[in-house]
Design a protein around this nucleic acid. Structure first.
Lengths: 224, 224
DNA sequence: CACCATTATGACTAGGTGGTCACAAAGGTT
DNA sequence: AACCTTTGTGACCACCTAGTCATAATGGTG
């Protein structure tokens, strides 16, 4: 986490610095991100960064945490108990995700890029840890649905949670790949990443949900 | 592709060099792989490599192609028409994949690692191209199953093929993550990557197949 | 103003990379 | 043996990085 010196900075300068690094980590993997490049762009001395943060990793973790905190503001109010059907809940999470993207495109793109750092040697351990944590959460969630008879019970929850995490990740990839052009163009022109495409994007999400819904449905049951 | 000089080398020396680079690309992403490190390990001069290959990319593409050629020998005989059910065919492909792994663990692990290079800036374009090619193939395959009434027809083939490619990739990840310890231990000790775990691994594959089968099943049909 | 703690600076270190090239060695042919 | 083409070599180049630290600038306080 940042040193005191950073927190004593005027808030707008903090934000300028954070934004610059968000952009860097959005466009480069951890090991390829260059502090030298960012300070050049910011017009400040390299040494200053090391007055604010212990090292590159400290900086990386802070940026990630800052983006996550922002996203959490959007999705924390989506509760499972407010939905009868799990998949309505799941869809609502993506709907909030798109909202997050509309209002905080920088942070959204950064989180997406960071999630692709899984194989960067310097931070691989952290990502493995985060992935395992996600798997545990998903497994608990899925177990609950199984217990209530909403999900099939003939497969291991481990496989099912892995499958769900993987598919969730790939929904993001799908959007990035097939709507990514607009994605980046919007960023450059300062517009929201998914500007005016909410409905289009949610239609893609719905297709994936339809697939997962069928996959998780209790077997020996008429579908629809 | 390699220069003539490389092909004139004694076959066993060719293989020694290729193996060394397979190991390097197995343990490092494209941009992190170090030619200097490999030549040091091989005990030959760095300049020699540039007598054999144009540059690092040329080397990378050759190594990838060599591994793929090896894998193809195992899976090229698995034909869709030899199976009544698509998922039997899909399973047979994985079965051959495990065979490939048993007999060519080096090449198998290298191909897996290379597939994780998607976001390495220097080779990202190539990987995008390969991914698009894979999507086209899968889309055609899926279209055929839809036409014959084996797959549901209420979703776009684009989404379905993306979903299938994604899941296929993640079956590999699942194996790597949950059987990876043995994986690497086997490599070090020169044993096949999936030694004596064929059945265990295919059980995992079967679970994923069960999920995909349900996901792709024509809707409004009693399953099982 | 003088004092002092805090903050900003950028040249510098140590380490890494892919790729080059003048030269040395090897090997085949006359 | 003499010649010439092909192959092997490793010091070297240009370029990049994260992180350091002596020094300078700043700003608040008595």
């Amino acid at each position: 986490m940042p040193k005191d010196t950073f927190h004593k900075l005027p808030p707008e300068k903090q934000k300028t610095i954070v934004n610059a690094f968000i952009d860097e980590f959005s466009n480069h993997r951890y090991d390829d991100a260059s502090i030298t490049r960012v300070v050049k762009h910011l017009g400040i001395a390299k040494g200053s960064i090391y007055q604010y943060f212990k090292d590159k990793l400290d900086l990386y973790l802070y940026i990630k945490q800052a983006c996550e905190q922002e996203k959490l503001r959007y999705i924390q109010d989506v509760k499972r108990d407010d939905f009868q059907d799990f998949w309505m809940y799941y869809r609502a999470l993506y709907q909030s995700g798109v909202q997050f993207d509309l209002k905080s495109p920088r942070e959204s793109k950064c989180l997406y890029s960071i999630s692709k750092n899984e194989h960067s040697p310097s931070v691989a351990q952290f990502h493995n840890q985060w992935r395992d944590q996600a798997l545990v959460l998903f497994e608990a969630m899925i177990q609950r649905e199984i217990d209530q008879g909403y999900f099939r019970h003939d497969l291991s929850t481990k496989t099912m949670s892995f499958f769900m995490v993987a598919t969730s990740v790939h929904i993001g990839d799908y959007m990035q790949i097939f709507h990514g052009t607009d994605f980046d163009k919007n960023i450059e022109e300062g517009r929201p990443v998914f500007a005016e495409q909410e409905q289009l994007l949610l239609q893609s999400v719905d297709q994936f949900i339809a697939l997962m819904k069928a996959a998780f449905q209790p077997q020996n049951e008429t579908n629809q």
